[in-house]
Amino acid sequence: MKTPEAFGGWNGVLNTGMVIVAALYTGIGFFGYLKYGERVQGSITLNLPNSLLAQSVRAVMAASIFLSYGLQFYVPMNIVWPYIKSKLTSEQSLKYGEAVTRFVLISITFLAAALIPNLSGIISLVGAFSSSALALIFPPLIEIMTFWPDQLGQSNWKLWKDILIMIFGFTGFVFGTFINVKNIFFAY
C-alpha cells in the first residue's frame, strides 16, 4: 500500500498473485485428475484415502475456510451495511446494528449450506454466471468505453482484442450457465 504503482504492471502484485493462484489450481486439478481420472467426486479432498495425512489435509482446509470467512465476507458487508446504517437512528441501534447484520447474513449463508443438498451445483452456477462476466466480459467492455474512440491503438487492435475476449467470456457464460442449470434440475 505504500507503493500503489507496484500493484499493476507485468510483474506487479496483482499479476504475480494471480499467476501463482492459477498455477496452484491448475496443478491440483491436473494431478487430481491424473490420480483419480473420471472417478473424481466433487472436490479432490473427497477422494483422498482415510489416512492420517489425508485427514490433516481436510482439517487444514476446513480451518482455512473458517479463518478466512471474515475476510471473504468483508465485501458483502460493505455493500449491505451502509444501507442498513442509514435506517438506524439511535446510538443504541447503531451500536448493535452491525453485529446483528453480520449475524443475520452469516446465518443466511449457514442455512443455505445446510438446506441445499448439492451446494456444489449452486456454486458452479454462480461461478459460471458471475465469474465469466466479472473476469472476461466487463473488463474489456470498460476498456473499450475508456479508450473510445481515439485511443484504441494502431488499426484498433485493442478493440479487436477486447471483442475476442468478450466473445470467449460470453461463450463460457452461456455454456457454463446452461450446463449448470441442467445439472441442478435434471441431476436426479
Results as ranks from 00 to 15, higher is better:
V126Y: 11
I137A: 02
M166C: 05
L134A: 13
Q154V: 14
K161R: 15
N156R: 12
K161Q: 14
K158Q: 14
A133K: 01
L152K: 01
F170P: 00
K161F: 12
W157C: 12
Q154T: 14
S132C: 06
F129C: 08
I165E: 02
I137R: 01
I144T: 04
I167T: 09
W160I: 11
I163D: 02
P149D: 10
I165F: 05
W160M: 10
D150Y: 14
Q151D: 15
Q154H: 12
A128E: 03
V126P: 00
M145G: 10
I137Y: 00
L141P: 01
G127A: 05
Q151A: 15
G153T: 07
G169I: 02
I137M: 11
F168V: 07
W160L: 12
S131D: 03
A135R: 04
P140M: 04
G127V: 03
L134P: 00
F170N: 01
Q154A: 13
W160V: 11
I163M: 08
L136K: 00
P149T: 08
E143N: 14
G127L: 06
P139Q: 04
D150Q: 14
I165H: 03
L136N: 03
N156P: 04
P149W: 05
Q151R: 15
V126C: 13
I144A: 05
Q154I: 12
T171G: 11
D150E: 15
D162A: 13
N156Y: 10
P140T: 06
S155T: 12
G127S: 07
P140I: 04
K158M: 15
Q151K: 15
L136D: 01
W157Y: 14
P140K: 01
L164M: 11
A135L: 13
F147V: 06
M166E: 02
L159I: 07
P139C: 11
K161L: 14
L152M: 13
I167Q: 02
D150W: 11
F168L: 10
F147L: 14
L136C: 08
E143G: 10
P140R: 00
S130V: 10
K158F: 09
S155P: 00
Q154G: 08
W148N: 11
F170E: 03
P139G: 08
T146M: 13
P140H: 02
L159F: 14
A128F: 03
K158S: 09
A133R: 00
I167P: 03
S132H: 00
W157K: 11
W148D: 09
W160N: 13
F129Y: 09
T146Q: 14
A133H: 05
L141F: 07
Q151S: 15
V126W: 07
P149Y: 00
I165Q: 05
L164P: 02
M166P: 05
W148L: 10
L159H: 03
D150L: 12
P140E: 04
I142G: 09
S132V: 02
I167D: 04
W157N: 14
W148M: 11
W148H: 11
K161V: 07
G127E: 02
N156S: 13
F138S: 09
F129A: 09
M166T: 03
D162E: 09
S132T: 06
S132Q: 04
G153D: 08
L159T: 02
I144Y: 00
L159E: 01
F168C: 05
L152Y: 03
M145V: 13
P149R: 10
W160Q: 09
L136M: 12
F129I: 08
D162M: 01
Q154W: 09
